[in-house]
Write a protein that binds this DNA or RNA. Structure first.
Lengths: 104, 104
DNA sequence: TTAGTATATGAATATATGTTCATATATGTT
DNA sequence: AACATATATGAACATATATTCATATACTAA
C-alpha cells in the first residue's frame, strides 16, 4: 500500500493565482528593498525614496502595487503618508529567505 | 535608549540578487505547478508535460531555468531524465505559501 | 547503421514589467 | 485665495519573460 501511484492532486486556479502574485511581489529588488525597510520601521514615501535612493514616483508606483496585494498599509499625518507592513506572513517569508541566502 | 533612530542597514547587492532570483522562480504559475508536482514525486519531462498539459518544450525550458538555480536536479535512465527537487528550503517556502493562500 | 523515442535548444513572437517624466491631486499654511 | 509640500497617476519607453515552432542532440534497440 501507499506505493505513491495515487493520482496527483492539481493546484486549483485561485490558489495558483494568489501564490504566484505573492511571490511576484517579492521577486523585484526594489520591492524587496521597500518591504525590508518597512519591516524595520514605518516610513513616509519621501523617507523611503531617500533611504533607498529611488525616485519618488518609483516608490509610489511600487507602494500601490504592494497596497493592492495588502502587503502594506498607510496612515495619514497631514500631507504625509506613513507606510508600514500589513502582512506579517509575507514579511516572514522575506526575512526567512534573506537569512537563507546569507547562510549558504 | 533604543528609540529606533539607528541607521538602517541596507541589504547587500548579492543577497538582494539571490533573494529576488529565488522569488522570481516561484512567481510563475507554470514553474509553481512543476515544482509542486516534483514535490509529490520524481517525474520525467514527458510525465510533467502530460500531467500538467504543457508542451514538452515549455517544460524543458522551465526545467532548465530551475536547474540553473539548483532548485531541481535529475538522474538519467536511458533516454529518460527523471527530475526531482534539489532545494528543500524553496519547496518548503512554496508549500508554506500554498497553505497560507488556502487558509485565509 | 538505421530508426525510434526522449529531451534540449534557438529563434521568433507576444505580453508583462519597471522606470521615468510630466502633471494632477490632496492637504496644510499664510 | 494663493502657495508650498507630499503623494499619486498616466503615458511612453526599454527591457524582461513565457510560450511556441522547428529542429538538433542523446541514447537505445533492432
Amino acid at each position: 500500500m501507499n506505493e505513491n501511484n495515487e493520482k496527483y492532486e492539481q493546484l486549483d486556479e485561485e490558489t495558483l493565482f494568489i501564490v504566484s502574485q505573492t511571490f511576484k511581489a517579492l521577486s523585484d529588488p526594489t520591492r524587496i528593498r521597500i518591504l525590508h525597510l518597512l519591516g524595520e520601521k514605518e516610513c513616509s514615501v519621501t523617507e523611503i525614496a531617500e533611504e533607498l535612493s529611488l525616485m519618488q514616483s518609483t516608490v509610489s508606483h511600487q507602494l500601490r502595487f504592494l497596497k493592492n496585494l495588502r502587503l502594506v498599509k498607510f496612515r495619514r499625518a497631514g500631507t504625509t503618508l506613513f507606510y508600514s507592513i500589513d502582512d506579517e506572513h509575507v514579511l516572514a517569508l522575506l526575512n526567512q529567505t534573506i537569512h537563507h541566502a546569507r547562510h549558504d
